[in-house]
Design a binder for these strands. Structure first.
Length: 577
RNA sequence: GCCGGAGUAGUUCAGUGGUAGAACGCGUUCUUGGUAAGAACGAGGCCGAGAGUCCGAUUCUCUCCUCCGGCUCCA
């Protein structure tokens, strides 16, 4: 069995071979294997688009028939330069790699400069197990100062079945796209007048946000957090002191006051929380101080970066900061970990935890002395060990101000998203001279812990919508039950029981439109409402409802008091089904 | 910001150098229906915004705005 990466890289060669036959003046850049497939970057003399892909793919299959082995040949830098004299990209690579020796690989009549990693024989490639998917712009060598090339992406697997499964998964993901579901379920909108990256939350969407936030708050409250509230703007002085002005001034929304002062919309909350901590001197006995705010931050993201709720300019953070002594940090980390665990477990996410460490090869990227980093990273590793969780190290993933634990959630389609994060900050307390008085009556430097559970409500909701396909658990569903009268003769009874349910705390809607019962059920199902209560003459007479549960169908006649208490119980326990 | 694609009714989309069409949704009426689409009629559009070419532009050209797929970025 051959290596999948070799297979994918071989297909990149095949793609280049087909492109060069169809577009002889296209210039090749690089073509590696990637997750699920491969790509190759080209400079085309005139733009190509997705419509051109079927022809290229067809040519790939034709060429593949003529290929067998990949012949390797060592060549000198001069020979290579001669061979690729019209290709500035290959020439750049030749100059870079000439000291390590250069190799050419040939299959059929196609030859490419390449460091190797191909299938033994091109006959091993299943012509039905790859597919070109889309084109995209990509900077040469990933540097935005360089020329933009055209990248052609393809999917590739060992068997046609695997390719098919992956395509089915992509289709499912498309159906669950949170931008699409957000509109269909009426959760949020964007307005051209308000601007891009600025979502507006409808009543249903706002309800969900508030329910999620209350859940996080409940978990925090139990662990000694206190809510604080802060303004959304600040004088630039705050960010000059925190260091953010210098580092991130391009990403700040700035405000000029009529008196000529410069303010900024807050892009993060820590400096504000720090000012609350710093309102008075603290005894070590009063620590930790744990401040939490669910509040928006504003970042002037590049327009091309914005995407649905995943990347916005007005971001709601469930942000908390713990101010504590360094020796206390571990205990606080563990508490936050518990919150993260409890929160994500409710939604059925599988979690992995990345211990994000500094990169010893680049000490210049980090603040503070090595000894403190060593101590701090040792602590994080201990925590990861004690928690006995699925953890891994991320070298070079630390913040410049400290190491952190990043939580990755795997959704129901197997995609992984970074969500919660717990960060140790040894820098801000220095900059703002944050301290407490210790047992010896001395001023002692404290540390800060940044702790976001959802991270951003917008991003978390984008993940949750796609994870659940919009079928929210009962406790979170904006409408938990719909009452569907079979004809308008039952409208009055429907209103009556809706009111009764509403009084027991159930979020309920009545579908009393002049439509058939089939149509009402269809509409309610499309809204992914957990429970539908169908009421006809039978139910009116017996004072019941025929209940249909989302995903399960008819679950029989229910007494209303029993039904209401069942929903309340589901909501209280945040049950999922 | 960059490359490519796209903006037509509330939504999903057809379409045309002579100022527009479907389906669903919405309204009215008929229908009173038992577990995923009953019927008829009707309202609804400065064809994303601005400029240019043309006798005439929703259609062609340019600029801007917005969205999508990527790239770069993400405290």
């Amino acid at each position: 069995m051959h290596n999948l990466e070799h297979l994918r890289h071989s297909l990149a060669h095949l793609l280049a071979a087909a492109v060069l036959e169809l577009y002889p003046d296209a210039k090749r850049a690089i073509g590696p294997a990637i997750e699920n497939g491969f790509y190759y970057d080209f400079e085309f003399s005139s733009p190509i688009s997705n419509e051109d892909l079927p022809a290229i793919e067809k040519r790939m299959r034709e060429i593949l028939k003529k290929w067998s082995t990949f012949e390797k040949k060592e060549i000198s830098a001069d020979e290579a330069r001669e061979l690729f004299k019209n290709n500035p990209y290959k020439l750049e690579l030749i100059n870079e790699y000439q000291s390590q020796g250069l190799t050419l690989y040939t299959s059929g009549s196609y030859t490419d400069l390449c460091r190797g990693g191909h299938v033994e024989n091109a006959k091993d490639i299943d012509p039905k197990a790859f597919k070109l998917t889309h084109t995209a712009g990509a900077y040469w060598r990933g540097d935005e100062k360089n020329k933009m090339l055209t990248r052609i992406y393809g999917l590739a697997f060992t068997t046609a079945k695997e390719l098919e499964d992956h395509v089915v998964m992509l289709e499912e993901a498309k159906k669950r796209d949170h931008k699409k579901l957000g509109q269909e379920l009426d959760l949020f909108v964007f307005s051209e007048l308000v601007g891009s990256g600025l979502p507006l939350w409808t009543p249903k969407g706002t309800l969900i946000r508030n329910l999620l936030d209350s859940f996080v708050w409940e978990l925090r409250k139990a662990r000694g957090y206190q809510q604080v509230d802060i303004p959304h703007i600040t004088k630039k002085d705050l960010y000059e002191k925190s260091g953010h002005w210098e580092k991130f001034k391009d990403d700040l929304f700035k405000i000029n006051t009529r008196e000529g002062h410069v303010f900024a919309m807050k892009p993060m909350n820590c400096p504000h929380h720090i000012q609350i901590y710093d309102r008075k001197p603290w005894s070590y006995r009063e620590l930790p101080q744990r401040y939490a705010s669910t509040t928006k931050v504003y970042r002037d993201e590049q327009s091309g970066e914005l995407a649905g709720l995943s990347r916005v300019r007005a971001i709601t953070q469930d942000d908390a900061h713990v101010f504590c002594r360094e020796r206390r940090a571990k205990e606080e980390f563990l508490k936050i970990w518990d919150i993260v665990h409890e929160f994500y477990q409710v939604f059925g996410f599988m979690m992995r935890v990345r211990v994000s460490l500094h990169d010893p090869a680049h000490p210049e990227k980090y603040l503070g002395d090595t000894a403190r980093w060593t101590t701090a990273e040792k602590m994080l590793r201990e925590i990861a060990q004690e928690k006995n969780a699925d953890t891994f190290d991320g070298i070079g993933e630390a913040n410049f101000y400290g190491p952190k634990l990043d939580f990755l959630a795997k959704d129901s389609l197997g995609r992984e998203w970074q969500v919660a994060t717990i960060q140790l900050d040894m820098n801000m307390p220095e900059r703002f001279d944050l301290s407490c008085t210790n047992e010896s009556g001395e001023k002692e430097r404290i540390v800060m812990i940044h702790a976001a559970i959802m991270g951003s409500i917008e991003r978390f909701l984008s993940v949750l919508i796609e994870h659940t396909a919009g079928a929210f658990p009962t406790w979170l569903a904006p409408v938990q039950a719909a009452v569907l009268p079979i004809s308008d003769k039952q409208n009055e009874y429907a209103q009556k029981i809706a009111l009764q349910l509403q009084n027991s705390g159930v979020r309920v809607e009545v579908y009393d439109q002049n439509e058939t019962i089939g149509k009402k059920i269809r509409n309610a199902e499309l809204q992914k409402i957990p429970y539908l209560l169908v009421v006809g003459p039978k139910e009116t007479d017996s004072g019941t409802a025929a209940v249909r549960q989302r995903g399960k169908g008819d679950i029989g006649q229910k007494n209303l008091d029993d039904f209401a208490s069942q929903i309340s119980k589901e909501a209280a326990t945040r049950a999922s089904w």
